[in-house]
Every structure is written in structure tokens, then in C-alpha cells.
Computed example of a mutant assay.
Amino acid sequence: MKRIIFASLIIALMFSGIGYAEYTEQTKNNGVKHQIKSESQITSQPAQVSLEKGKELMSNIEVLLPTYLPKNYKMENVIYNEPPAEFKNGVKLNIEAHKAITIRYRNQNDPSNWIDYTTKAAQVIIGDNDTQDLMIQGVEGQILEYPDKEIIALSWYKNKTNHFIISKGNITKEEILKFAESLK
């Protein structure tokens, strides 16, 4: 299966609440919960926050907003996530590099159509053989399309910030690129 499906699953789980049982550790002051499953496996339940709170939590990078949205799309919610500071086995993560904010935009006439824009400091590369390179906001980026599944993913790294967009539904490549270029 293609790696982008894995990213889609992660993002979908961020919004679903499925599979989150008892949480044994909660991070401080931001609402993200972590369930420790083993020494090296932790499941996170991201926190829904206001846009202002999300920008505050992501003070290490600039959170961009689009000046263009496809017709009938509106911001639905803002999700903040960060990894735990340390796994049971002692592995420590750089929270500043791996914390992320996802802003979901949904088509008000067809809720099955949405765009998720995720940003974080750590660089993310779409690792798939079908990925195509293209220029986004003046830097090299990647696009991956699954027309039969109505999925488009974009990723680019600019100003020490990773930008990742995934869309689901009958959104055209041109609309997603226009959305990406409009982020300011």
C-alpha cells in the first residue's frame, strides 16, 4: 500500500477518537493525551484548540492561513498534537520539532470533501514512487495524486517549516495548488 495512505490514516485518526481507551499520561497545559501501550509505542489523542491557541502552541514556527478556499469550504477545526517527551524505553523526542497543528477545511455542501493543512518544524517527505516534484511557494515540493480515491497530497519545506496538505473529495489539483500558494 502506498505510504500516503499511512499519512491519511494518521490524520483521520486525529479527528476520529476511535481506539482511544484509558490514557495514562497527559501532557501539561495543552490537552494532548498519550496512552502508553509498550516501551516504544504510544498512541496520542490530539487536542482540539482555537486558532489563537494553536498559533500560541506553535510559537516555534509561523502558522499560515489561506487567502483562497475552494467554493463552499470553511475552516472546521484546529487540532494540536505533540509527541510525549519520553518513551518508557528512555527514547526522548524533540517536542519542538515534532509538534504539529492541523487545520481542517470542509465543504459545507458536501462534508465528505475536506482539506487538511498540517504544519510543523520537522521536515516530512512523501516517500512514494508515484510522487512528482513541483514548485510550491518558490521552493521544491512534492505532489501525490490518487484520482480513483479522490486524494491529493502536497508537501514542501520552507523557512524551517514543513507544510503538508491532504485533500479528500472532488477537489481539483489546480484548486489544491491555488490553496497552497495562497497560504500566508
Rank of each mutant, 00 (worst) to 15 (best):
K2Q: 06
R3T: 14
I4F: 10
F6Y: 12
S8W: 14
S8L: 14
L9I: 13
I11V: 13
L13A: 11
G19D: 06
Y20C: 13
E22C: 10
Y23M: 14
T27M: 13
N29H: 15
N29V: 12
N30H: 02
G31A: 12
K37V: 08
K37T: 02
K37C: 01
E39C: 09
Q41W: 05
I42C: 11
T43A: 12
T43Q: 05
S44Q: 11
Q45Y: 11
A47F: 03
E52Q: 12
K53R: 15
K55C: 08
L57I: 12
L57A: 11
L57W: 11
E62F: 02
P66F: 06
T67C: 03
Y68V: 00
L69Y: 04
M75S: 14
E76F: 13
V78D: 03
V78N: 06
I79Y: 08
Y80M: 10
Y80C: 07
P83H: 03
P84S: 13
F87P: 02
K88H: 00
K88T: 07
N89S: 14
L93C: 06
N94S: 12
I95Y: 01
I95H: 00
A97Y: 09
K99Y: 06
A100K: 04
I103F: 04
I103E: 05
I103N: 01
R104D: 06
R104C: 06
Y105E: 00
N107S: 14
D110E: 14
P111E: 08
N113Y: 04
W114Q: 12
Y117H: 13
T119A: 09
A121I: 08
I125V: 09
I125C: 00
I125Y: 01
I126P: 04
N129S: 09
N129A: 07
D130W: 00
T131S: 12
L134H: 01
G138K: 10
G138I: 05
E140S: 09
G141C: 06
I143V: 09
L144T: 01
D148E: 08
D148R: 05
K149Q: 13
K149A: 07
E150V: 00
S155W: 02
Y157E: 02
N159T: 08
K160Y: 09
T161H: 13
I165R: 02
S167A: 12
S167W: 01
S167F: 03
G169W: 03
T172F: 01
I176R: 05
L177V: 15
L177P: 10
F179S: 07
F179A: 06
A180Q: 00
E181C: 05
L183C: 08
K184P: 00
K184T: 13
